[in-house]
């Protein structure tokens, strides 16, 4: 019987390893999911670090129109709009769109912009060389800023995509997270005379 008990114990340990492994796998699904999204474009997530623009041949035979949608989430009082809501670009061509923000509240608010691209596949071919969404953006009461987003569309963009939509949603992340690199918003506009 003790032989039996030993065997049982060995087997239990092996099975517990599987259990612990699968518990870990549940959490591993989080980064795996991001990898999966990067590969397939699920949800139109874009990269959250800057791409490097190497001058490439501009494909003038195609024109892609890119549409911008701006939204603020619940509890986020900022004014937020794209200064250009639609641009037409050739694949490979670098272009810049500015986004206007203003904090009407009487306190500092830190914002995080979350991009989403539709159709999701297009996200894989949208290369942002500079974006306000890479960092958290602080604004003091009454401050306003014009935040740039510079991008180019990869010429590999599938032929059946002639336009896509990029949405930015601003979230209030004041006091949360550690991504806030700067005290002052780098894209600040000059303070309006009136102040607060």
């Amino acid at each position: 019987m003790s032989e039996q008990a030993k065997n049982n114990q060995k087997m239990v340990i092996k099975l517990l390893v599987i259990v612990v492994g699968m518990f870990g796998f549940g959490f591993a699904l989080v980064p795996l999911y991001d990898v999966f999204c990067d590969l397939t474009g699920i949800n139109g997530k874009t990269a959250n670090s800057a791409a490097v623009y190497t001058p490439i041949e501009i494909d003038e035979s195609r024109t892609i129109s890119v549409e911008f949608i701006t939204r603020t989430n619940t509890g986020m009082p900022w004014e937020f709009r794209a200064e250009t809501t639609r641009v037409k670009v050739h694949p490979g061509e670098l272009s810049t769109v500015n986004f206007y923000v203003r904090n009407p509240a009487n306190k500092q608010i830190v914002a995080q912009a979350i991009p989403s691209v539709s159709p999701g596949v297009a996200a894989l071919y949208l290369n942002k060389t500079e974006c306000f969404c890479f960092n958290q953006q602080p604004l003091l009461a009454g401050e306003e800023a014009s935040m740039p987003m510079q991008f180019y569309v990869d010429p590999q963009l599938p032929d059946d995509i002639s336009f896509f939509t990029v949405q930015y949603t601003l979230f209030d992340v004041t006091g949360k997270g550690d991504k806030l690199a700067v005290k002052e918003n780098p894209y600040l506009r000059e303070q309006p005379e009136s102040g607060i």
Binding site: N43, G44, S118, Q167
Partner: peptide
């Protein structure tokens, strides 16, 4: 309709 993301 997913918060933070768009669908088409």
């Amino acid at each position: 309709a997913n918060p933070g993301f768009i669908n088409e």
